[in-house]
């Protein structure tokens, strides 16, 4: 087993488990996994924006909520099939994200973080204020998906497949963006904006694109979330959701694609587990878990796995990762950190 095949092996294994496991999972657990995946789609967007483009955005939860409301509104008001509301949610949320990003991107770093957090904090209030549009406190219902005949006995399984398909589209989109020149340009302007500008990178354009795609994924994730729940209200999109998405991004590993899914599962399941351990101390244990993950691995869970895999390879065969392969280089970088 060489240094290149192991991560692929892990990925293929994970994909196989993702496809087979739901058949055996109880309905409620499967539903929780779907919710985690819907968050993961938004986390994936944030990884692109925060990890690769270097822009801190604390409004991802609000954009997630925006997508959910677009889905619900189009369905409740115009009777549009929930399937068709998903692309609409992605596109309209991208537009909303750009409207936020255009003025906000003049600022960088912590200032951008605070401005976007302001949006996240104001969002649930705005939902209540515009109750003629959003249904206010009582929220909006969404029709359940028409389930094809083979899945009639177990609609949860069909919901799961739809969710996985949306996640797949998100992964494909992010991979395409990160591949080749675009990905290099993103990382270059993150590592050194001035030099990138001297090389002809239009900083505003690149950052806006990243913001737009990240928002589109937030919207898609939100749309999926709305369909899964069948009902949404402002309560689901408090400012804490934005923070949770940032936590998911960092815990999984901001510069990874796999990490978005680990992060999504983390923010859905770990708080439940910790409060199972002790109801009163749930948040304390959750907090300690977060601190623990960050202390063990600065680059998230995926970074940690890479580090371990790398260490294993070196001790068992003395095989130093090759700098000629992209994978090998990633391992070197992970090792240095």
């Amino acid at each position: 087993m060489n240094s290149r095949s192991l991560p692929t092996f892990i990925k293929v294994g994970a994909a196989a488990i993702a496809l087979i496991a739901p058949v055996f999972l109880p309905d409620f657990l499967l539903f929780e996994v779907c919710i985690a995946l819907s968050y993961s789609i938004a986390v994936l967007g944030l990884n692109l924006l925060m990890g690769f483009a270097g822009q801190i955005c604390l409004a991802q939860g609000a954009l997630f909520g925006f997508g959910a409301y677009v889905t619900a509104y189009l369905n409740a008001e115009f009777g549009l099939s929930p399937y068709w509301t998903l692309p609409a949610a992605a596109v309209l949320t991208a537009a909303a994200g750009l409207a936020v990003g255009l003025p906000a991107l003049r600022l960088q770093g912590l200032q951008l973080a605070i401005i976007t957090f302001g949006i996240a904090a104001a969002f649930p209030q705005a939902l209540l204020k515009f109750d003629w549009l959003t249904g206010g406190v009582s929220g909006l219902p969404i029709d359940s998906l028409e389930t094809p005949a083979p899945f009639a006995g177990r609609p949860e399984l069909w919901l799961y497949l739809v969710t996985v398909a949306c996640a797949g589209v998100a992964v494909l989109l992010v991979s395409l963006v990160l591949f080749g020149d675009t990905g290099r340009t993103l990382r270059a302007q993150r590592d050194n904006a001035q030099i990138a500008e001297a090389l002809g990178v239009n900083l505003t354009k690149v950052r806006l694109w990243a913001f737009g795609i990240s928002s589109a994924l937030a919207g898609l994730g939100g749309g999926v979330f709305a369909i899964l729940n069948g009902f949404i209200s402002p309560q689901s999109f408090l400012a804490a959701v934005s923070i949770n998405i940032v936590i998911a991004s960092i815990v999984g590993g901001t510069t990874t694609i796999t990490g978005a899914f680990i992060g999504g599962l983390f923010i859905v399941f770990v708080p439940t587990w910790t409060s199972d351990i002790n109801l009163a101390l749930g948040n304390v244990i959750y907090g300690l878990a977060l601190i623990g993950v960050m202390m063990i691995s600065g680059n998230g869970v995926v970074g940690l796995v890479k580090k371990l895999v790398c260490g294993m390879l070196q001790t068992t065969s003395g095989n130093v990762p090759s700098l000629k392969s992209i994978q090998g280089r990633k391992q070197w970088i992970a090792l240095r950190k």
Partner: peptide, 30 residues
């Protein structure tokens, strides 16, 4: 830059986590 002015900034500013080849690719993004 497109019109033909290239600038090598002070302190070089090569991208440390990019390979030599990728750094060259970055030079040609226009």
């Amino acid at each position: 830059l497109r019109l033909g002015i290239a600038h090598v900034p002070q302190g070089r500013g090569t991208f440390a986590e990019f390979t030599v080849d990728e750094n060259l690719s970055l030079g040609a993004i226009t």
